[in-house]
Write a protein that binds this DNA or RNA. Structure first.
Lengths: 163, 163
DNA sequence: ATAATCTCTATTAACTTAGTAGGGAAATAG
DNA sequence: CTATTTCCCTACTAAGTTAATAGAGATTAT
């Protein structure tokens, strides 16, 4: 289950992505629009910044903006920053591997094997879907975003079948 | 993340599946072998029984056994009984749908759309993998289990590529 | 009868998540 | 240069969930 923190993070990032790469938005504005507690959101954005997803400016006309184009920010990275590894169990994780304390033989553990497949399936989606992809379904602004990404020579992944 | 409870449940069920459909095993034995707290495991097995996955017998030579063949018990059902819906967020769940309190337009919510795909991918694995499937990779007993399932005319899903 | 085993309800302990509080540091406007 | 606005940082608290424990009740085999 996604934590509320992750959901706030995704919403904020999507809002910034819609806004466009250069434009600053202030925490208060995001908090208000997303109905998130402002102080809590501050912590979240700060963390995203520390991981290189956001750029910020302090002072009077300050705020946050994406640190890179929306088609280079993947859901997988966001979720991992906020909630940790995707895998249902640590022993099936690539990014956060940890041995099970009580597992006799990891190589043949049936649970691990199944959960590894689950992890891979999740990764297949989350590590290949960007903010831009997610927005590409609706609104002119979003489609423009993706088109300009295409111009820059980036692959658009998981584009909607009918679009 | 899978709860410890679910992990205990899976281990217990797999152990019972290996044992064969008729054979009783006692809670104490499972607890000992899986290094799970006995009293805690009791609660878990009871819950699985209430959901029709286990059959039990009380009294002196009592214990637990699978209530149906190992190739009819799906990981998805087990996980849902223990941990609830598969979907990362309730609004993307089929079995446990709940509207987001703060979502303006669900139909176009980009987060929901992505998480729905994640849910589907998880379901594609967990709702198609049985205890028998999971065991089919190692050991004679396990393979025998699957073979006899095949004889009964059941599809073996997700059989290992090389087996 | 007795002992073993599952069944049930209630309670507690440990941990995680969500949120609050209160300043500190940098940028800008005037 | 000063005041104000905004992000930055650390610490704490509240609420909720998960994990486990406790103790008695019901059923069965011997």
């Amino acid at each position: 289950m996604l934590s509320r923190k992750t959901k706030y993070a995704l919403r904020a990032l999507l809002m910034l992505a819609e806004q466009g790469e250069g434009r600053m938005i202030q925490v208060s504005d995001i908090a208000e629009k997303q109905k998130a507690p402002k102080k809590f959101l501050e912590l979240i954005l700060l963390e995203l910044k520390k991981h290189g997803l956001l750029h910020s400016q302090r002072g009077k006309r300050g705020g946050y903006t994406l640190a890179k184009p929306a088609d280079e920010i993947y859901f997988g990275q966001i979720v991992r920053i906020m909630d940790g590894p995707l895998a249902p169990i640590p022993c099936a994780s690539l990014t956060g591997y940890r041995k099970c304390a009580d597992c006799a033989d990891e190589a043949t553990c049936p649970i691990r094997r199944v959960m590894r497949r689950v992890r891979d399936a999740m990764s297949e989606i989350l590590d290949k879907t960007t903010l831009a992809d997610a927005l590409a379904h609706h609104g002119r602004k979003a489609r423009r975003l993706v088109r300009s990404a295409a111009k820059r020579g980036r692959k658009i992944r998981n584009a909607p079948a009918g679009a």
